[in-house]
């Protein structure tokens, strides 16, 4: 396949970027999207040009590092797929592909397609944990039975990879899906119960501080989330938040 790529180039955080056009040829449909990017970078390096910086690590859809906005969609056109899992067979010979970084005030660009998502870490630091000592002097694991249904739902919420596609795709750059996934996971488990009020209040406060937008329930995040994190989690977080706001002292 031969392709035309329009890629966002930005030398650094405080520099103004712009779209540049590149051509790649002989791309196999079995290549992954990032392998196609490798081919481009190989070509750029050999031509003495600056390769395109982009984030990636596991290349199997689990680390959450890859983050490209491809043809107007976070992680590209396929559902339930991270950028690294996208394969070139989803495109046609002669296509023009637009590639941009996640765009949000809370995700400043580091270089080209690479953005800084440490705001997500700070939200988790605000309360996305159970305050248990790492001593191992806990009770036996089976002393805390958890109804399978809740365990499964908590697991589904916990599969969030923290990629930020939800923010990238949201017209408001809202981080609600990400935050609600963690709040839900811990709200669904007895282990998370003692801190549930404080947790949701703190995490939401931090989320707002980071400069994410507000959720208006467009539902785009759920559609684009590579892990299928459900909007039910956002509703659950709204519930938790209302409850905590009303009951907190």
């Amino acid at each position: 396949m031969n392709l035309t790529l329009k890629i966002w180039r930005q030398a650094g955080p405080s520099v103004i970027g712009k779209m540049e056009t590149y051509k790649v040829s002989d791309i196999s449909p079995d290549m992954s999207f990032l392998e196609m990017m490798d081919v481009l970078n190989d070509q750029l390096i050999r031509d003495g040009k600056d390769p395109v910086a982009f984030d990636h690590d596991c290349r199997e859809g689990i680390c959450g590092m890859c983050s490209m906005y491809i043809n107007g969609q976070a992680h590209g056109p396929n559902r339930g797929t991270t950028t690294c899992q996208l394969h070139m067979r989803s495109f046609k010979d002669g296509d023009t592909i637009y590639i941009e970084p996640w765009r949000a005030a809370a995700f400043p660009v580091i270089k080209d397609l690479s953005v800084d998502r440490s705001s997500f870490d700070r939200i988790i630091q605000a309360g996305g944990y159970v305050s248990v000592n790492t001593s191992g002097n806990t009770q036996d694991a089976n002393a805390i039975p958890v109804p399978k249904e809740n365990a499964d739902k908590a697991f589904d919420a916990a599969t969030c990879i923290g990629c930020g596609a939800c923010v990238a795709t949201c017209t408001n750059s809202s981080a609600m899906l990400f935050v609600s996934a963690k709040v839900s996971q811990l709200a669904l488990l007895p282990q998370g119960d003692p801190e549930r009020e404080l947790r949701v209040l703190r995490m939401v406060e931090q989320m707002d501080k980071e400069g994410f937008g507000n959720c208006s329930n467009t539902g785009a995040c759920e559609v684009e989330c590579p892990k299928g994190i459900s909007l039910e989690n956002i509703a659950r977080m709204n519930r938790e938040y209302l409850r905590a706001s009303v009951t907190s002292e």
């Binding site: 944990y129 159970v130 248990v132 790492t134 001593s135 191992g136 806990t138 009770q139 036996d140 694991a141 805390i144 908590a154 996971q185 811990l186 488990l189 282990q191 998370g192």
Partner: peptide, 8 residues
């Protein structure tokens, strides 16, 4: 396992 379960 105990530790991890306690962590959620």
């Amino acid at each position: 396992i105990d530790q991890c379960v306690a962590q959620g």
